[in-house]
Design a protein around this nucleic acid. Structure first.
Length: 423
DNA sequence: TCTGGGGTCCTAGGACCC
DNA sequence: TCTGGGGTCCTAGGACCC
């Protein structure tokens, strides 16, 4: 059966999520900021046209933004996560084989389909728009890498109506010719420069590069990419992503933190979040790292950053236990006299909860009671909203919490914040 | 004053095993 | 003076993705 992939990519996803609930902003310039209102991480087309770069620190471009009447939002992951779930549910109806690739992208496999792929692509696009309000671009090609390229080209070409089909040989050739090698999925900045030095500038030149050279300079991963550009599928659809091997929870603080007590609250809160992610995939962690750092951008301030790892006596997913260990680690690396800007917790040696090797002499096994307690806590938080139940160690006031000055509502996940329409 | 937060895979080299 | 032939595991570093 001939392979055929759709890559469905939401247009300016975070911006679109905000616009769904503020329809007056369609056609107007909009940006969304990263956590802590740090950088610009999503731009509407109008803003892209102004030449504002992705990732610019907000404080540097604030004036420009204000001058041009750009609407600004803090990132609202509660909203984006839920909107993403709705988009994916809609897409799942169009193919039995789907890979949710990121919060705003999914691959559909339509191998063996009969009929016009582009027409089907338009159906997909229309359904998502109607059911969720989110505009998407559909890239269509025989390999995932080519489908990514197709959707990228589709976004640059308003005339295509959001569906870009590269199944035709001639069109594919033209697309590869016009695309920069750096636009290819799997080619980042370093490889782009390397390719440039060897005179490879376009995606077509990359496709035609000799296998041996690619293998030597870009590893087996690069060779797969090149073959995919030739139309040979090498990157299979990953329908059920493996459980994570590492889980990280870290944040910058809304303001500098100096006191150990406040750091402890933050670390406890991040540990709680990491443990939630751990349990959500049914795992336990065998080791843990805690790290803290000062603000590296304030070069004149005294700098300190440190991290420490320990192995747990027995793998665990029990929040109180993990918090206890994390705070012990924090005490070991904390130094007085610094302004801390960031802290984080990482969990490793992750395994299915039932597989953990027990220790005959340890007092720290996760008991059945403990597991039931965590299930109850997670269940309540799922049903009633995150943070409904939390651990006292996380603190109450949380003065270290991130800045989110332009936060929109939790329109789809919180009863009190459901939008009201007046007719 | 203000600068994000997650992840994955691959390779080379060294330690160690029989 | 002579010094095999496999294999695994771990780590650090480098590349990439959103």
């Amino acid at each position: 059966m001939k392979s055929l992939y759709f890559l469905v990519d939401c247009n300016n996803f975070y911006v679109s999520c905000e616009r769904v609930f503020r329809p007056a902003l369609w056609g107007r310039p909009v940006v969304v900021l990263s956590n802590n209102d740090g950088n610009v991480v999503a731009l509407s087309n109008e803003v892209k046209e102004m030449g504002l770069p992705f990732g610019a620190p907000f404080f540097e471009v604030k004036r420009l933004i204000r001058k041009n009447g750009v609407a600004v939002f803090s990132s609202n992951y509660t909203l984006y996560g839920d909107m993403s779930r709705r988009v994916m549910e809609c897409l799942a109806r169009f193919s039995p084989e789907m890979e949710v690739y990121s919060i705003d992208e999914a691959f559909l496999s339509l191998r063996g389909m009969t009929g016009d792929p582009a027409a089907y692509g338009r159906e997909v696009r229309e359904a998502v728009r109607q059911w969720t309000g989110i505009p998407v671009t559909v890239g269509i090609a025989p390999t995932k890498t080519m489908a990514k390229l197709a959707s990228r080209m589709g976004k640059k070409d308003p005339a295509c109506g959001g569906v870009f089909d590269l199944t035709d040989r001639g069109r594919a050739e033209g697309a590869l010719e016009s695309a920069d090698a750096g636009d290819v999925w799997g080619v980042g900045r370093q490889y782009r420069e390397l390719l440039r030095r060897y005179g490879i500038r376009t995606a077509r030149e990359l496709r035609d590069a000799p296998d041996a050279w690619v293998r030597r300079n870009m590893t087996i991963t690069g060779l797969r990419t090149v073959w995919e550009l030739r139309g040979v599928p090498c990157i299979p659809l990953d329908e059920q992503p493996a459980p994570k091997q590492g889980i990280v929870s870290s944040r910058s603080f809304g303001r500098p933190v100096e006191r150990l007590n406040e750091l402890r609250e933050a670390v406890a809160a991040y540990t709680g979040r990491a443990a939630e992610k751990l349990r959500a995939q049914g795992s336990a962690a065998g080791s843990m790292t805690v790290f803290i750092s000062t603000n590296r951008f304030r070069e004149t301030d005294p700098q300190y950053s440190n991290g420490v790892t320990c192995r747990l006596p027995v793998p665990s997913a029990y929040t109180p236990r993990l918090i206890q260990v994390a705070l012990g680690l924090l005490d070991r690396i904390y130094r007085e006299g610094y302004s801390y800007k960031k802290a984080g917790v990482m969990l490793f040696e992750i395994m299915p909860q039932g597989d953990a090797q027990l220790d005959l002499f340890s007092r720290f096994h996760d008991t059945d009671r403990g597991r039931r307690l965590m299930r109850t806590v997670d269940g309540l938080n799922r049903a009633m909203g995150r943070h409904t139940l939390r651990f006292a160690a996380e603190g109450i006031e949380k003065p270290w919490q991130m800045r989110r000055a332009f936060l929109s509502g939790r329109f789809t996940t919180h009863w009190k914040e459901i939008p009201v329409a007046r007719a």
